[in-house]
Simulated scan of single mutants.
Amino acid sequence: MGKSGVGVGGTTIKEMPFSERPYEKLEQYGPQVLSDAELLAIIIRSGTRNDPSVSVARQILQLNPRGLGGIHQLTLEELKEIDGIGRVKSIQIKAIAELSKRLSKLHAMDKVRINSPSTVANIYMEEMRYLEQEHLKIVMLDTKNQITGDSLLSIGTVNASLVNPREVFIHALKQSAVQIILVHNHPSGDPEPSREDIAITNRVKEAGELLGIHLLDHLVIGDGSYISLKERNLC
């Protein structure tokens, strides 16, 4: 297991040749010119006695076939298997990965008008496609079909008997939503809707009609693909 610090003789960014130092490259040319490993090296700050921080960063990126895109899937224990990465650094890496994911989602949501299922899928695909359990979310829209917020309704197998429409619309009413969309993932990667998915959709749709809040769609997210129940005429 790696150590969170570096002992005497450890290689730090400051000990690298000036032209190879990520800090200086970022200051002079901007963050866009740095490689994924160099950006990650800035976060972890120091390497080990034998490996500079950029080399340690490359080892982290190689832990998942998706490289940078797979960092958020790595566990703290997997990160700590890298020499030079201990408790503190592994937590920092996970925190940065989560912040990056949230920033990406906020950017995608910013003043976007929801006019098709693909627009919703583009916002939630990366967040939900790799989840190991089913997550059901409600997405709330205003009169301009812009997202005003979302809320997590349940984690685990999505079951019509466990999803209470009352809980769904408590969130919608708090946000003054006029329309809502349900989004959940299938950990198997296959977005084909189940009977339970269809049953939940119908229950929520019927409850929404009584409250004057329209269920616009229900999306099932798979691994890189999705299915819209509205497009299937099931919503």
Rank of each mutant, 00 (worst) to 15 (best):
I60E: 09
I60T: 06
S118D: 10
A121T: 09
G156K: 08
Q133E: 13
I71T: 12
G69P: 09
L68W: 09
L79D: 05
H72A: 06
I43K: 08
S104A: 11
E78W: 03
L61V: 12
Q146C: 07
A97G: 09
T75M: 02
L76R: 09
S55D: 15
V56C: 05
K105D: 02
K89S: 03
H171G: 03
L131C: 00
I42Y: 03
V120I: 12
A97Q: 06
V158Q: 01
R66Q: 14
E134M: 02
I71F: 07
L63K: 12
I42A: 09
L131R: 10
V168M: 04
I42T: 13
G70A: 13
L106I: 11
H107L: 10
R45F: 06
R58V: 01
H107G: 08
P117M: 00
I82F: 01
K89Q: 08
T119F: 04
L131G: 04
M128Y: 02
F169L: 06
R129D: 06
R45H: 12
G67M: 12
R45Y: 07
T148H: 00
E167A: 13
A121D: 07
H107A: 11
R102E: 14
R49N: 10
G86L: 09
K137E: 02
N164I: 01
Y124Q: 04
E78V: 12
E78Y: 08
Q92L: 06
N159L: 14
S90H: 03
G156S: 11
G84K: 06
R66G: 03
Q146S: 07
V163Q: 01
E167N: 14
K137V: 00
D51Q: 14
S116L: 07
F169T: 11
H72G: 03
E81P: 00
G70M: 11
R49M: 12
M128W: 02
A121Q: 00
D51L: 14
V88Q: 11
Q73T: 13
R58Y: 07
D110H: 14
I42C: 11
K89G: 05
M109T: 08
Q146V: 09
R166K: 15
K80W: 10
I91K: 14
A57W: 08
T119Y: 00
R66M: 14
P117S: 00
K144T: 12
S154A: 10
P52L: 13
V54N: 04
I71H: 03
M128F: 00
R129M: 14
T75H: 04
T157F: 03
Q73R: 10
N115W: 02
G67P: 12
I170S: 06
Q133G: 05
S46G: 14
V88H: 02
G84Q: 10
P65D: 12
R113E: 13
I85K: 05
Q62S: 15
K105T: 15
G67D: 11
E126P: 05
R87T: 12
A95T: 10
V112A: 06
G149N: 10
E167Q: 15
H72S: 11
H72D: 07
S116K: 10
M125H: 01
L141Y: 03
